[in-house]
Design a protein around this nucleic acid. Structure first.
Lengths: 179, 179
DNA sequence: ACCTGAACACCGTTCAAGT
DNA sequence: ACCTGAACACCGTTCAAGT
């Protein structure tokens, strides 16, 4: 069953409008999203039955990019260097995307973590497996452990980011490394 | 200016009602809090002008207890043992309190972290200073670093808590320790 | 001074009518 | 099939009247 072209276009308009509005202070009002997209309230509701569905659509794309990056880094670098670089990119994504998005909806904080068994979890598992095979990583941590430990990224403030994040990532990587 | 006794009593009733309701699934409805407390809507609003003020009142007490604990542990144990034990208690508090409370209000996630320069930050600084003096801790991390790294605690699920948290705390402490 | 609770305002959700 | 937007419902906030 192919999607009608106007439906597909409207879906894109909604996501675009939400992407713009979510960076603004205050809540993300669904009525404002519909208005900015130039659509009726009911149309928004047809595409995204809850606010959570809409917010999830916003960050799904970012997760796909992180997954693709893990594959590429593993092909180009040693396991520990790949993990180190991937963390740095994760940090950059978290700063811009997850922080802003999740500030809108408390339940999303929960769901990003719960989603780990998906593609993101597999990508991270690949990184960890390579590192363990090399003997540089603890052998008792899994991908969910690492996702959990990375939550701090969502709470670092803009103005302290540059000074604090490299050190925090170093502490975390140190803790994951075998002595 | 002393508080009128009925006002003090009502304030306590509100906090008590909110404490009970916040553990239930779904949002914390202010109207439900007023109803359970047996008070009018306006009375709730007089005491707590925003939902955030109410939620903050709920976890302020918990923070006080953590602060007192840090002092006591430093008097009774070696610096690294004190830090280790304090982390374990922090984990227990985070599990029961912060996770439930912050799930209700996204902005609270933000504010718990921003509050670090307060009493909690001082208590943690005392722990870190003692550890550094002993030469067991990295000398470039501060109390806010540790608070940020502890955020994972709020995202561990009930059923995985026992298996995962000890390992995650070990990774974190390992990262904070000098090699 | 503080409390009450009905009235108001805001915004998410629904649905009858239109294309 | 999908879209529109007015109507509805829910809940946070306010305020005139009461104690």
């Amino acid at each position: 069953m192919a999607e009608r072209s106007d439906a597909a276009r409207n879906r894109a308009l909604i996501i675009e409008a939400a992407r713009e509005l979510i960076t603004e202070p205050g809540e993300l009002k669904l009525s404002a999203v519909a208005k900015r997209a130039g659509l009726g309230q009911g149309t928004l509701y047809r595409h995204f039955a809850t606010r959570e569905e809409l917010v999830r659509a916003l960050y799904d794309r970012e997760i796909d990019e992180l997954v693709a990056l893990a594959d590429r880094l593993l092909g180009e670098h040693s396991p520990d260097e790949a993990l180190r670089r991937w963390f740095t990119h994760l940090a950059a994504y978290a700063r811009v995307k997850f922080g802003v998005i999740a500030a809108v909806e408390a339940s999303v904080w929960h769901d990003i973590g719960a989603q780990t068994p998906g593609k993101l979890g597999e990508a991270l598992t690949a990184l960890l497996t390579a590192g363990r095979a090399d003997g540089v990583l603890r052998d008792d941590v899994d991908s969910r452990d690492v996702i959990l430990l990375s939550w701090f990224l969502a709470h670092v403030e803009e103005e302290e980011w540059a000074e604090r994040t490299p050190r925090l990532l170093a502490v975390l990587l140190d803790g994951l490394t075998t002595r």
